[in-house]
Nucleic acid binder design. Sequence first.
DNA 1: AAGTGGTCTAGACCACCGT
DNA 2: CGGTGGTCTAGACCACTTG
Lengths: 238, 238
Amino acid sequence: MRENKFLSIYDELVNQIQSGRMKPNTKLPSENELVEQYHTSRETIRKALNLLSQNGYIQKVKGKGSFVLDVSRYDFPVSGLVSFKEIAQKMGRPWKTIVNKLEEIQPDEYLQKQLHISSKDTVWKVIRSREMEHERIILDKDFFIKKVVPNLTTEICEGSIYEYLEHEAGLKISFAKKEITVDEPTEEDYCYLDLKDYKHVVVVKNYVYLEDMSLFQYTESRHRLDKFRFVDFARRGN
Amino acid sequence: MRENKFLSIYDELVNQIQSGRMKPNTKLPSENELVEQYHTSRETIRKALNLLSQNGYIQKVKGKGSFVLDVSRYDFPVSGLVSFKEIAQKMGRPWKTIVNKLEEIQPDEYLQKQLHISSKDTVWKVIRSREMEHERIILDKDFFIKKVVPNLTTEICEGSIYEYLEHEAGLKISFAKKEITVDEPTEEDYCYLDLKDYKHVVVVKNYVYLEDMSLFQYTESRHRLDKFRFVDFARRGN
DNA sequence: AAGTGGTCTAGACCACCGT
DNA sequence: CGGTGGTCTAGACCACTTG
């Protein structure tokens, strides 16, 4: 009983949908019925259902009811904060992370601006290549403020830095802004990516904020354009 | 008093933030204070604040309060369902829409699959170029099921089809899935875009669903890569 | 200890949908 | 008409932050 009530109801319903016990295009029990089933109040049920709706599991229709959506059609991660590790695992392909660089630097002007820091702050610079099917497809450049993340090792970088930060270091990520553009390759790109003849790379810039609203990480993910794919959901209301 | 109470409170707070009356990094009145100011209940205030949080205007911190975020840094539309018209207006640049084609077609196999229809259904095919600063930068290919959208004219297509569909035709869009990739240009791209020497285009595929969960529109937006930019928010919790 | 946001309750009225 | 989800209320308890 540690979990919030509305969250555990949400989890149970997600489970029923993903396992196939609730089939797509069928109607869920009405909110009042769920109130009885779970011995709770209607607002709590509504909180759980709104979460399901936001995450693409159900569709609520006024006057009719809530309906199970066909989850199997949305083959890709939905939420925005997705790490490379999660993506690679969902795609079920073998992949490898190569740590090219892990060093402490003094931020140049561009970085000072991106991270909102002064030139006196030290910054971790991590450069990693992501390899799939023997091709280095993605170049990840991460910059962390050292004040916030004192320790960083090659081992951590080979896994998922996000996982380490959230679970080990106990930092709470609250939101991220993502920006996608297309640029010409830099020297670094030519060096650390198998670029073939492509004259451009897809650049995904990530600004990650902590719960106290401080920006603590700036990431640039540079993708070979033929391998790039990004999927996003947008919903209006419920 | 037509609007929902929580929506009008949301609107007023958005206004205060965007106009600069509420400055970034300052604290909002506490929820209890807002309850008194707006003569309402706390859950209603919370609904408004959650909307503000979801849309990137504020950040709520347990035990401390709600804080105004620096909205000016997020210079681009945040929500996913954004029409070209909105984007162009926010960028404050002159733009033009050219309707290249507006015709009824029988869907080929690819389209039948994308729209989940049979070969017997008629489909509107609309091809529009988007021009900014005398360059055709974006090629929009829209496909609508004619059963759902019986009437479509060149005039409508020159404006915003979304606006027409939602306000005039009364269709309720519930959610959309977006997919971004990079492809080689097609003949159509060469014909309707000022492509310069670029050997690729950024392709944004949009699947738009109605409230009854039926897919009714498939759109392909093909962008010249040097002019492409996509911004997205992702938030955990709150 | 006081103030904050997060959760939860039990009840109410409304707009919408089907019959 | 009865059932559905959408909104709103007034009150309660909790976990967290700050003085």
